[in-house]
């Protein structure tokens, strides 16, 4: 499978939110405004890519060599949490501008299952290192696309005349479901 088709597949066809249903919590939580949604999306790209590099190395260098593959989940969670903390501290010192922009989203991402999901998919699909990186960037870009599109939809929905019982989260979930069905259309793509 060549890298371009892998990239498009991970970003759109197998969109992390709409077809894999990972990372739905920040997707619903941080999608009230397009600006903040975009900020969250960019922070997720940043963290997923970094986390994939580290977890891939740990998996190949430590877990596989020692035959401890069953520790994968707990190790990855440990590494992702530590990594996000580290990145936050590093950014605060060396790139205050970027820290200001991503600051509040970084701790939120620690518990984002999309990060763990991508790290595990990279291993279970037996990607090479390059493929794993392409998959990580593609998947997180898919998250950015999804959350920004959804924020746009919510912006419109906010102004709509809704029955009282549907207001808020209820209509958001309905809208997310409909968008998911729309993204299902991509699944026929043969790349």
């Amino acid at each position: 499978m060549n890298l371009i088709s892998l990239f498009i597949t991970s970003a759109i066809v197998n969109n992390i939110i709409f077809s894999q249903f990972l990372g739905a919590c920040p997707f619903l939580g941080v999608s009230k405004k397009i600006d903040t949604a975009a900020g969250m999306g960019i922070a997720v790209i940043f963290v997923i890519t970094l986390a994939s590099v580290i977890t891939y190395i740990v998996q190949k260098a430590i877990l596989d060599t020692l035959g401890l593959q069953y520790l994968q989940t707990i190790m990855f969670i440990l590494i992702i949490a530590a990594l996000v903390q580290f990145v936050e501290m590093f950014l605060k010192k060396s790139a205050p501008g970027l820290y200001q922009a991503l600051g509040i989203y970084l701790p939120l991402i620690t518990t984002n299952c999309a990060v763990l999901g991508v790290a595990i998919i990279n291993i279970t699909k037996e990607y090479s290192f390059i493929e794993a990186m392409v998959n990580s960037v593609g998947t997180s870009l898919g998250f950015l696309i999804a959350i920004v599109l959804f924020a746009g939809v919510r912006d419109k929905v906010d102004n709509a005349d809704l029955p009282e019982s549907l207001k808020g989260s209820a209509i958001s979930l309905v809208a997310a479901g409909l968008m998911s069905i729309a993204f299902l259309g991509f699944s026929g793509l043969q790349l």
């Binding site: 020692l66 520790l71 440990l78 530590a82 903390q85 580290f86 501290m89 590093f90 010192k93 060396s94």
Partner: peptide, 23 residues
């Protein structure tokens, strides 16, 4: 040992980073 080891390594790294990157 592996879990604890990586945990300790992460912890030490974070502690060092907290000192190093303290604003």
């Amino acid at each position: 040992a592996v879990t604890g080891g990586i945990g300790v390594v992460c912890g030490v790294l974070l502690a060092v980073a907290a000192k190093l990157f303290a604003v």
